[in-house]
Amino acid sequence: MKHVYTGKTKDVYELEDGNYLLKFKDDVTGENGVFDPGANTVGLTMEGAGQAGLRLTKYFFEILKEKGIPTHYIDANVEEATMTVQPATVFGKGLEVICRYRAVGSFLRRYGMYAEEGQPLDAFVEVTLKDDERQDPPISEDALDMLGILSHDEYKELKDITQQIAATVKEELAKKEIDLYDIKFEFGRAKDGQVILIDEISGGNMRAYKQGEYIEPLKLEKLMMEK
């Protein structure tokens, strides 16, 4: 097993069979000790966050598998906080794709002249470049195509699959009377060129509320995994 990458919230290893192993850490993104799924820095360490994030990720990836939505997921070991995935190449140097159902976070900071906090949004899809130095700037479909990061056809596929996955997560959360405000995904190209979901789907990359109160990642995992 060869260590290939150290990330903010997980480490990546290459396996002998050509697949990869993701090792989930207890670090979550945020600033000044406050969790923020859109932050570029590790803000705090929460004991058990790695396992909790993986437990929820496994839950969602297995639902997507049943629905035939393409992801890199193969299997997961929650006890060891590891997930085995198929190889995929990222778009450019990495994109983040956010699906928004409510105006909060960076959407509100940018568009606050027109939007009110918590205002409903119609599964708005936003793509940002993974670029810590430039604070992950949003980028349009035309710019993605012109810069050779993503073609127009791939963008349409990316947007469609993003809305499908977000709708699935929203539906599952609603079963526990939890409202999904926004969720962040990462995508890549599989060996055959297909656009697939990569990384994770956990409390650490979404904002969820219950009766108007924000639910922290670890609490969200507990609520979702309760029988």
Rank of each mutant, 00 (worst) to 15 (best):
M46V: 15
G48Y: 09
G48W: 05
G50R: 00
G50D: 03
G50C: 01
G50W: 02
G50T: 11
G50M: 09
Q51W: 00
Q51I: 01
Q51G: 08
G53M: 06
L54W: 06
R55K: 15
L56F: 11
L56V: 12
L56K: 01
K58L: 05
K58P: 07
K58G: 01
Y59I: 04
Y59A: 04
Y59L: 10
F60D: 04
F60L: 11
F60K: 08
F60A: 07
F61T: 09
E62L: 04
E62S: 01
E62P: 04
I63T: 14
L64I: 00
L64R: 02
L64E: 00
K65L: 14
K65H: 13
K65G: 10
K65P: 08
K65C: 10
K65F: 01
K65T: 15
K67V: 13
K67E: 15
G68S: 06
I69N: 07
I69Q: 02
I69W: 02
P70A: 05
T71Y: 03
H72S: 02
H72Y: 07
Y73M: 10
Y73N: 10
Y73T: 08
I74F: 02
A76I: 12
A76G: 14
N77V: 07
N77P: 05
N77T: 08
N77Y: 02
V78K: 06
V78D: 07
E80C: 00
A81H: 03
A81V: 03
A81D: 05
A81Y: 00
A81L: 02
T82R: 03
M83V: 10
M83E: 11
M83R: 01
M83W: 06
T84K: 11
T84V: 15
V85A: 08
V85S: 00
Q86E: 14
Q86F: 05
P87K: 06
V90Y: 01
F91N: 09
F91A: 02
K93S: 05
K93T: 12
L95R: 06
L95G: 08
E96A: 02
E96G: 09
V97I: 14
I98R: 02
C99A: 15
C99M: 13
R100M: 10
R100Y: 06
R100D: 09
R100E: 10
Y101F: 13
R102P: 13
R102T: 14
R102I: 13
V104I: 14
V104E: 12
G105R: 09
F107P: 03
F107H: 09
L108C: 00
R109P: 05
R110T: 12
R110W: 03
Y111A: 09
M113Y: 12
M113W: 14
M113K: 15
M113T: 13
Y114L: 07
Y114A: 07
A115N: 10
A115G: 10
A115W: 01
E116Y: 09
E117L: 11
E117S: 03
P120Y: 03
